[in-house]
């Protein structure tokens, strides 16, 4: 069953002559245990699409369902809770809290949400171990390398065990070898725990590791094909 369902989703910014149609009549379903690579040129609407799925933006038209719920109907509080508990974001670039250590960045989600502290600590250590971050877990975020930071970001997105992972160019600042390791860690987590994942990438070699490849042009689906 599909975890994420986008049906005829459009998003435009601005009015009149300055209007930009970033996403147009976009439909996509992502199944449990499936990683969809989203590839397209700059400005084609990839980030906007992730923001829509993550309830950071509301669509101009269309329907977005997560686990069957239409998230476009949510109010402000429900959106905040949705982002906290049901979505894992991995942003491009430096997205750590700079003065916290790798481990503290993971435990951050416990700061503004309910949850058993001890269970969160156990979960954090488990993820740090899975992503080879044990040696650097007490290092302040600013002293981590790009690859380490990217892995911490993935670990943080997985802390609350969300059903949907939205990942924006996770390997942009990494070399091929490191990028592969980061993406593979992500894939194994999605497959192991039956999550749904959209991974935006510019790098075709990374896209080829996903289960499905969707190409986007000017806000619409250009092609959609399975990779295995």
């Amino acid at each position: 069953m599909a975890i994420l369902q986008l049906r005829g989703v459009s998003k435009s910014f601005g009015q009149g002559a300055r209007r930009v149609d970033a996403v147009r009549d976009f439909s996509l379903e992502v199944d449990r245990g499936e990683v969809v690579a989203l590839e397209g040129p700059s400005g084609s609407g990839k980030t906007t699409l992730l923001a829509l799925a993550g309830a950071l933006l509301t669509p101009t038209a269309g329907e977005i369902r997560v686990d069957g719920d239409d998230i476009t109907k949510y109010g402000a509080r429900a959106r905040t809770r949705y982002r906290r508990d049901r979505v894992g974001f991995v942003f491009q670039g430096s997205n750590m809290v700079p003065f916290l250590t790798a481990r503290e960045n993971l435990l951050l989600v416990g700061e503004f949400g309910a949850g058993d502290r001890a269970a969160l600590r156990r979960r954090a250590d488990e993820l740090l171990d899975q992503l080879d971050l044990i040696p650097v877990r007490d290092q302040v975020a600013t002293s981590l390398s790009g690859g380490e930071r990217q892995r911490v970001a993935i670990a943080r997105a997985l802390m609350r065990d969300p059903s949907l992972l939205l990942v924006d160019e996770p390997t942009a600042s990494l070399n091929f070898e490191l990028g592969t390791r980061v993406v593979d860690a992500l894939l194994s987590e999605v497959h192991l725990r039956d999550k749904a994942c959209i991974m935006v990438t510019h790098d075709d070699r990374m896209a080829q590791r996903a289960d499905r490849l969707v190409e986007i042009r000017d806000g619409s689906v250009l092609s959609d094909r399975p990779l295995r």
């Binding site: 905040t80 982002r83 997205n95 503004f112």
Partner: peptide
């Protein structure tokens, strides 16, 4: 970022 990952205003 904190808001995006669910920190309430």
């Amino acid at each position: 970022i904190l808001k995006a990952i669910g920190a309430p205003g």
